[in-house]
Design a protein around this nucleic acid. Structure first.
Lengths: 151, 151
DNA sequence: CGACAATACTTGCAAATTACAACTTTTTTA
DNA sequence: TAAAAAAGTTGTAATTTGCAAGTATTGTCG
């Protein structure tokens, strides 16, 4: 069990999910990129997070991220609020429009994924969900590489 | 079981794997990008594939891909051979150096992943591997979106 | 207190990445 | 055999990205 081709499994899975994400996710007439959808997702997931926090979570250079946020603000999907206690910090949040787009994408992705899961029986489905959850948990806790204080 | 947050599971998993991939994979003094590592991986996986086949598999525009291949040829990691039967087609393959780099990255990624899997017991491990395999299979066969004739 | 370092973010600039249009070459079709 | 189609390549322009250097605010320490 030590010499599985784990990389291959992950590589294919992430690529297929990436393709799904890439082709399938615009909403309400607004076309946003894969990167932008990740940002919206993460702003929503981490409540009241700063620019730096989200940038680190996504593994993006902060200067790049700063500009990405500027774009999303122009699209009226994100807002920046100065932190009350430390005015250097900008707290990010989604606008109503941003929330809506994020939900729409969520819905679409879940629909697609459910479509795939429909080909499995209840036992397989449950096992897959449990496995992905477990993996996420262990990768989060791993000190190997690639984790930030904000998961 | 219908309203799982499947998207969230996939989003986190693929991001974490992406970070792993991003930070952890250069080899033999050659720094290659994430995109390049995917290309090497895929050229190796699909034997004797054409430029178009790999480009489609990876969901990359063919003009972009053409230039990516040019870069990899300059790095002496990939070669292009005209197809004997149809001279419009270029068959891609890895050079010895390319094979070596790909193997090194494989090794590194598998080491990291094994490190993560070490925190699981044998039953969990097996269940996760089986789940990922099943998922890959079903996504490959899915007509929903995002599959090419070459998987 | 006050200078100096550190932190959070932003902008200048240059390089890398990407994609559409238009092109060449070769093969297929009718 | 002429026209259409397919596989790649290049021109060009827009977008994305990251390092260096900047501003503004906060923390530190003599």
């Amino acid at each position: 069990m030590e010499n599985e081709n784990l990389r291959g499994l992950f590589q294919l899975l992430t690529r297929r999910f990436g393709l799904l994400n890439k082709n399938c996710c615009s909403a309400d007439g607004i076309e946003i990129s894969l990167v932008q959808s990740h940002i919206l997702y993460e702003i929503n997931r981490q409540n009241k997070a700063s620019i730096q926090q989200i940038a680190e979570t996504l593994g993006t250079d902060i200067t790049t991220f700063s500009r990405q946020i500027q774009s999303l603000i122009k699209l009226n999907l994100v807002t920046k609020t100065p932190d009350a206690e430390d005015r250097r910090i900008s707290i990010l949040s989604l606008t109503d429009e941003g929330v809506k787009i994020n939900q729409t994408i969520d819905q679409q992705m879940n629909d697609y994924l459910n479509e795939i899961f429909k080909t499995m029986n209840e036992f397989e489905k449950e096992s897959v969900v449990r496995s992905l959850t477990l993996l996420n948990d262990r990768m989060l806790k791993s000190s190997v590489c690639c984790t930030t204080p904000w998961g």
